[in-house]
Amino acid sequence: MGPLIANGYIDPAWNNVIALLVGIAFGYILEASGFSSSRKLAGVFYGYDFVVLRVFMTAVMVAMVGLVYFNYMGWIDLSQIFILPTYMTSVIVGGVIMGLGFVMGGFCPGTSFTGVAVGKLDALFFSIGLYLGIFIFSLAFPWLEKIYYGGDLGPITLMESLGISRGLFTFLFVLATLGAFWVASMVKKRVKDIEI
């Protein structure tokens, strides 16, 4: 049955309308959770606010379990969903740079847009930085190409990388996430609150 557009249940002409509606819900949820505030977001790195960890990990967990369930019920053909390809060298370099950008800038791209929407100038400057960064990347691409295409493993999944089933990985992920929530609540008790 699913994905609905690929299997003709919804006309592809609706694509951009769906995109807009999904975006509205996405922005609403992020902002309502407090993601328009860089000081709340950065709290995850210093232990004074774990909203990022709680929202993000819960979301991954719910979607992951949901896909297992939809697959079991035969509602979605998982072979038709997009799998981000793994370029090992590139994703390692990218992940480390993004982490540095996160702790310096206090936002990630999606959250900076929500900050702009409620009038945060720091979010606007972060978004302008994103634009500049991507432009610089495109100019420097001839020198970065080797890294960008480095370690090409194709669209592999965790099941193939780790040699375990989707169900088992999902179960372990849920356990690890609940463990992380517990650790976060312990850390939060020991760290001094800050006035945001």
């Binding site: 994703v91 990218g94 930085g129």
Partner: peptide
């Protein structure tokens, strides 16, 4: 720092083929 962080996130998200949301 917001601008610098944004620039780094912009560069990193190209290497990562997506950011915190997409990747």
């Amino acid at each position: 720092y917001a601008t610098l962080g944004g620039m780094l996130f912009g560069i990193g998200s190209q290497f990562g083929r997506g950011c915190t949301s997409g990747a």
